[in-house]
């Protein structure tokens, strides 16, 4: 007969036991077992990859430039869409509504997956993600822009069309360029429209000598 039902259940349970650390990693707690030393920070400089991110790792800030996209407070995931209902049947824009309005899509018909890669789509800050700024230029940009450097990848593809007060903090250079040009256009046009209209009206009151032609 072999094992009873209880016996089989225990066997299956034992087989599933090694997956336990993965469950803990998803929830953001320090993983037990062999991954525990990833939480020890004194070896931070030497470690290669443990697929576990120390939240105290500093992301380099670009002065005046756009602040890197802060995803969520949770550590980066290997599959950012895990647990989403009906994910396989939905389109990207059903949740990411504003990101389709970018020049890559509008001018060159490039779709989301062409840059963001096939599923599972990892968080951009995840070490294995092609979108990680350490390798984005090589894995994504250079597919079309031959010779792209890490600097090239700091171009903001999903730049908001509207410049809001939010942009002041996230992308100050863009905000202030926009403010300057807007002030210039409005100022110049106002002054010279009023000037032109005043001139036009004033000329009606000038006594002209008889027209020559």
């Amino acid at each position: 007969m072999g094992l009873s039902r209880v016996g089989y259940s225990l066997l299956i349970g034992l087989g599933l036991l090694p997956m336990l650390p993965a469950a803990f990693a998803q929830q953001g707690m320090a993983p037990p077992g062999i991954y525990a030393d990833a939480a020890i920070s004194r070896y931070r400089d030497q470690r290669l990859s443990s697929a576990y991110y120390d939240p105290s790792d500093q992301v380099p800030q670009l002065r005046f430039g756009p602040t890197p996209q802060q995803g969520s407070a949770l550590p980066p995931k290997l599959d950012a869409h895990i647990g989403i209902k009906g994910y396989m049947t939905r389109s990207c824009t059903s949740c990411h509504e504003t990101t389709i309005a970018n020049s890559h899509n509008i001018k060159s018909n490039i779709t989301c997956h062409q840059c963001h890669g096939g599923r599972p789509i990892a968080s951009s800050e995840h070490y294995f993600s092609p979108m990680n700024p350490i390798r984005r230029h090589a894995y994504v940009c250079a597919k079309c822009h031959e010779g792209a450097s890490a600097s090239f990848a700091t171009y903001v593809v999903h730049q908001n069309r509207e410049i809001t007060s939010d942009t002041r903090k996230t992308f100050p250079a863009l905000y202030w360029s926009n403010a300057f040009m807007l002030a210039l256009i409005v100022g110049v046009m106002l002054i010279f429209l009023l000037h032109g209209i005043a001139w036009w009206i004033r000329e009606w009151f000038v006594k002209h000598r008889d027209s020559e032609d």
Partner: peptide
């Protein structure tokens, strides 16, 4: 350009 200037200057 991105070799000489940061890539985000292209947005500007």
């Amino acid at each position: 350009t991105s070799h000489l200037l940061p890539g985000w200057t292209l947005n500007v």
